[in-house]
Design a protein around this nucleic acid. Structure first.
Lengths: 229, 229
DNA sequence: TCAAAAGTGTTAATAGTACACCCATGA
DNA sequence: TCATGGGTGTACTATTAACACTTTTGA
């Protein structure tokens, strides 16, 4: 294989590749994005997206998972590639092609982690600072894609704990779409999505009266998908 | 810059990058995809997507345009990146990362071109052959994205001539969504999208009575977008 | 006892779907 | 004169949006 490749790929240029992650979480009724303060290199002191080089023999998606785990400690997170940024001059120090992913994580899982890097910080989406290169554009593209995907599939639940109240869910949807929802209409909407099942459990942390806890049911979701056809 | 890069990027692996194009056109009331019969290399004789290596100092999108122009002769085509395929073993002869685009072209413009390569062929979408690697998956992803995009923006018109009849437009939409439309309801839909303006011109090629020709009006479209807010 | 969040139905407006006949023309 | 595709309106259904009061309970 190596010899064949040498003939076929003679004089073909090669490129550095980085995976960039736009990591979303939800708390204080707001979407947040995780940024990293650079501690070396030409952007030292600047906020950037978590990134890392793709390695030899490493699937590109796995590379993104590795980079994500390095900053958050989390594995098995929801991760989706958005697109690739390949302009010749996007990064001034070398030709580096960036493949951008977004991840959806539950902030409780993140908070539980030990030994988190101290150069990371959650920014509310509306307060993300101006960054270098095309990083702000990346976040914008990630938000757009995430919005679309959360309408199409219930992946937004990755930003909530396994048990959540109707209020939490509504606030999440409001934050994702940056638009308030009528409380009663929202309940009806969720009831139609019957794969979000009401449990007998009551959350007493956020109200005196207590609120019913709901959870995602995978089996019911598969049934729901079949019925929708 | 080169010296700095040598320090920063010491021991970082580099990769070959190809752009792949899923080229769509519309004729005989069907969507078609352009495939290329390989005339060299390990897949000789097989149908593949038009592809080519990204060059040094070439923006990745421009690379896709160059590749597209080589097969179709067309410039200024509608082109959108879909995503990047980066599994370590996706291509067995070397680590090659593919960035996939789709293009929408008007078949009349294509047919007008001189000196077209003779190893290319239009396949109706339903008759695309089984191909090597992840190429069929790429087409599927391109169709999905193209469907979504054509609902969101009138980019599907790139597959019609500048002047088109209501029937052509309806057949195009039917082909894109693989679903028939009621003729009368469709007219109402297009009338609401008032940026598709009726001209005084009549097409007599496809019917004895003659059919009104419509065209896209960019100014009206911008106005429409403003009003939609 | 009262503040704070939970829970709960009905009506109006809008958007989408179903459906069938006459028209103009060239062959 | 007739076969072919062009053109047109109305009624029904489904979906979405608007809207306000009562309940529970811990502090």
């Amino acid at each position: 294989m190596e010899q064949k490749a040498q003939i076929l790929f003679k004089d073909i240029p090669k490129f550095y590749i980085v995976d960039c992650c736009v990591v979303f979480s939800f708390f204080n009724d707001k979407l947040h994005v995780l940024l990293v303060k650079q501690d070396h290199g030409p952007s030292i002191g600047m906020w950037v997206l978590p990134y890392g080089f793709v390695l030899e023999n490493e699937d590109m998606d796995n590379s993104a998972r590795r980079i994500l785990a390095a900053k958050t400690g989390l594995v098995d997170t929801y991760l989706e590639q958005v697109r690739c940024y390949g302009d010749a001059n996007r990064y001034p120090y070398a030709r580096v092609i960036a493949v951008m992913y977004y991840a959806l994580i539950n902030i409780d899982d993140f908070d539980k982690q030990q030994n988190k890097p101290d150069n990371i910080k959650w920014f509310p989406l509306a307060e993300v600072p101006q960054m270098k290169y095309d990083l702000n554009e990346m976040i914008h593209a990630a938000v757009t894609r995430m919005r679309y995907r959360t309408m199409e599939k219930p992946v937004g639940l990755n930003m909530l704990p396994p048990l959540f109240t109707m209020r939490q869910l509504r606030k999440l949807v409001e934050a994702i779409n940056d638009k308030p929802r009528d409380k009663r209409n929202f309940v009806k909407l969720v009831e139609e999505a019957y794969y979000i099942e009401k449990t007998n459990l009551i959350d007493k942390k956020n109200s005196k009266r207590g609120a019913a806890l709901y959870r995602f049911n995978q089996k019911l979701y598969e049934q729901y998908l079949k019925e929708k056809l």
